[in-house]
Design a binder for these strands. Structure first.
Length: 506
DNA sequence: CGGTATTGTAGCGCTAGTTAAGCGAGTACCGGAAGGT
């Protein structure tokens, strides 16, 4: 088995050896076992499903969270000569989509969004294929986004059943044991072979700086940025703050190329900024959590958290974007006492309030009574009930789960609705508590007096590796002499030209 | 003190014409594509 895999690796990628974990995961996949792979970030994950797609008969379906990730993959593969690859998403026009769907069996590898898998026709067509492997890429999204934000992730379990239970491969770079369990559970309680590799990095040092106000925060940030010539990412929980701080950096440190990035920007601008950062033309990115997935840059040296994420998992993920080349890197958290209000607010905002749920049910009941069993559009709903689109989708998923909604229609039953109201209120309360506990854990980490590396990973891994170089402020390390060591590695000045050319002409 | 606060996909698209609506188009498994010489 392993020689065949190695030959495949040589033939399709030109590599002699597998990277950590790849071979183990591939062997499990080739034996058609459900597999969970948690692999340190880098280029290695896609080999785990691309190789089976090239080597065996039948289709490989890859569920991917972002259009840009799908497009990148397809572009790269096509550039390397693999034509039997496609992405099925809203970039395509109706005709293009139909064309792909018509000739589905001509593709070995098909990328789709979880939302697309809710399209009945797409499912019908997929059912006619022989699916050799169903892949969920960036599988932590199931846990991180599934419950509230993108509920179609929770519907994947049903999709897998509808597709006659093909072998499933869930892949991610970071997943704590809790997230790992979540993934398996939410994919339909699958029994999976687990291949988990440690996610702590010995080359990242952790620092937390308490400041009194925003001005001090900015000063601290600018002082840190002054020390570097190499790429840095600064995370914010607010779009406007990301933008305004980018302006402050440009004004104070004109020698640094700095830009901002968040989900409210035009797609074109987002792609441009990300590519400029990857190509080394931008040193500092002020961004929200929108910046990250698909940002595969090796030499990021500094991650600053201007605001804090609402859980340790997100924090680990964001910090993990530094030092992928193994070079010494630094995470700095800046916090001032009031900062906790933001994540609390964001948590509250995701979940609907009791009153809103009651109002919604009353409104829907009146519609049913008037003979309208079909679901109202969100645009109509928002005129009567004050809920966000995210909250509406969350409730919609829950109503379907409780058989209050079937197809696009409301099913009324006095008892069923009453029971639903009770259970949904409990569920929402449970989610809220759970998220606040996660936030509390993050908070404890900030205030901890023990080794930050231990405190961050101890719950997640049996053994936390020793730091290579600096460890953390609680272990007595400082950043005063940091400039010297980081300046040793000269930035690669010619690199970006080649990279850009590669981007343009691939 | 008061403001402030994330994350993404899909939707049918085009046209004509300026604010609605009609039209064209299209997916059935079973096996070697399709473009370059």
């Amino acid at each position: 088995m392993s020689t065949a895999l190695q030959q495949g690796l040589q033939r399709f990628y030109g590599y002699e050896r597998f990277r950590t974990g790849q071979e183990e995961i591939l062997e499990s996949v080739m034996q058609n076992r459900h597999t969970l792979g948690v692999l340190p970030t880098g280029t290695g994950k896609s080999v785990c499903y691309q190789l089976p797609a090239f080597m065996r008969g039948g289709q490989v379906i890859v569920v991917s969270p972002l259009l840009s990730l799908m497009e990148d993959q397809v572009k790269q593969l096509r550039a390397r000569g693999f034509k039997r690859v496609a992405a099925l998403n809203s970039f395509l026009g109706f005709e293009e989509k139909q064309q792909i769907l018509r000739k589905l069996q001509h593709y070995d590898l098909l990328y789709v969004s979880p939302e697309m898998l809710q399209n009945e026709f797409v499912i019908q067509r997929l059912q006619q294929l022989h699916i050799q492997l169903f892949v969920v890429d960036e599988a932590h999204c199931i846990s991180q986004w599934g419950q509230e934000f993108r509920t179609d992730y929770l519907r994947l379990a049903e999709v897998i059943r509808t597709l006659d239970n093909p072998p499933v491969l869930a892949l991610t770079g970071t997943a704590t044991p809790e997230v790992q369990a979540d993934i398996q559970h939410l994919l339909g309680d699958l029994e999976m072979d687990e291949h988990i590799y440690p996610m702590d990095r010995e080359n990242i040092a952790y620092f937390v700086r308490e400041v009194q106000d925003q001005q001090e925060k900015n000063e601290t940030m600018l002082a840190l940025l002054k020390k570097i010539q190499e790429p840095a990412i600064i995370y914010f929980s607010s779009r406007t703050m990301a933008e305004s701080t980018a302006a402050i950096i440009r004004a104070n440190l004109p020698e640094l190329a700095c830009a901002y990035y968040h989900g409210g920007m035009e797609n074109e601008d987002r792609i441009l900024i990300q590519q400029q950062f990857l190509a080394g033309q931008l040193q500092v990115i002020c961004c929200t959590s929108a910046f990250g997935m698909g940002v595969d840059k090796e030499d990021v040296r500094l991650i600053i958290h201007y605001h804090l994420p609402s859980d340790k998992e997100s924090f680990i993920q964001e910090v993990g974007r530094a030092g992928r080349d193994g070079g010494e890197s630094v995470s700095v958290v800046l916090y001032s006492p009031g900062d906790w209000q933001i994540p609390v607010h964001l948590i509250e905002q995701d979940l609907p309030e009791k009153v809103s749920i009651q109002q919604l049910l009353r409104f829907l009941y009146q519609r049913v009574k008037a003979g309208h069993t079909e679901l109202p559009a969100y645009e109509l709903l928002i005129q009567h009930i004050p809920i966000s689109e995210t909250q509406w989708r969350f409730l919609l998923y829950q109503m379907e789960k409780h058989d209050i909604v079937k197809g696009n229609h409301l099913q009324y039953g006095a008892k069923a609705w009453k029971d639903f109201l009770d259970s949904i209120e409990k569920f929402v309360e449970g989610r809220r508590k759970h998220k606040l506990v996660q936030l509390q854990r993050m908070k404890e980490w900030v205030y901890t007096g023990t080794c930050r590396r231990q405190a961050l990973f101890a719950d997640f891994q049996h053994e936390v590796s020793q730091a290579k170089g600096r460890c953390c402020d609680n272990c007595g390390d400082t950043l005063t002499d940091w400039q010297a060591s980081s300046a040793k590695t000269q930035p690669n000045r010619t690199g970006w030209r080649e990279q850009l050319q590669h981007l343009l002409y691939q």
